[in-house]
Simulated assay, not measured.
Amino acid sequence: KRRFLPNLQNRKFWVESENRWVSMRITNAALRTIDKNGIDAVLAGMRADGQKI
């Protein structure tokens, strides 16, 4: 049997609005979403879902 695991990456993002670095363990697909929408929009969506950042 073969397991399909997500492509997880450890990344640090500079958030200009908060003037700090944010460390995240995210998938490659999430990296593409951040490139497309921006880190501020992604963080706002995560906070709306109730996730801790």
Rank of each mutant, 00 (worst) to 15 (best):
R2I: 06
F4K: 00
A44L: 12
L8C: 02
M46F: 15
D40P: 00
A29D: 12
A30H: 11
R47K: 09
K12Y: 11
I26S: 09
F4T: 05
F4D: 02
R47I: 09
G50M: 06
V22H: 11
L8K: 04
R3Y: 13
A41V: 12
N28I: 10
S17A: 09
V15D: 12
W14D: 09
V22Q: 11
N10L: 03
F4E: 02
K36P: 01
V22W: 06
R11Q: 08
A48F: 13
W21M: 01
A48L: 11
D40T: 12
G45H: 04
T33I: 05
A44S: 14
R25F: 15
L31E: 15
T27M: 10
A44F: 07
V22A: 10
A29Q: 09
D49G: 04
R3W: 08
L8M: 09
M24F: 02
E18H: 02
A29Y: 11
R20A: 15
Q9W: 08
F4G: 00
L8Y: 09
R20Q: 15
W21G: 00
K12D: 14
L31R: 07
F4S: 03
R25A: 14
R3D: 13
A30I: 15
P6R: 00
A41T: 12
M46G: 14
E18V: 03
G45K: 04
R3T: 12
M46Y: 15
D35L: 06
W21P: 00
S23V: 05
I39M: 06
Q51C: 10
N28A: 13
R47N: 09
D35K: 02
I39N: 07
R32Q: 15
N10Q: 05
L31I: 13
V42T: 12
S17P: 00
R2W: 04
S17G: 03
N19T: 05
V42H: 09
R25L: 14
R11C: 07
I26R: 04
D40K: 04
R20L: 14
P6S: 04
R2V: 08
N19C: 08
R20T: 14
L43G: 01
R11N: 08
A41K: 02
K52C: 11
V42E: 10
Q9V: 14
R32C: 14
M46S: 13
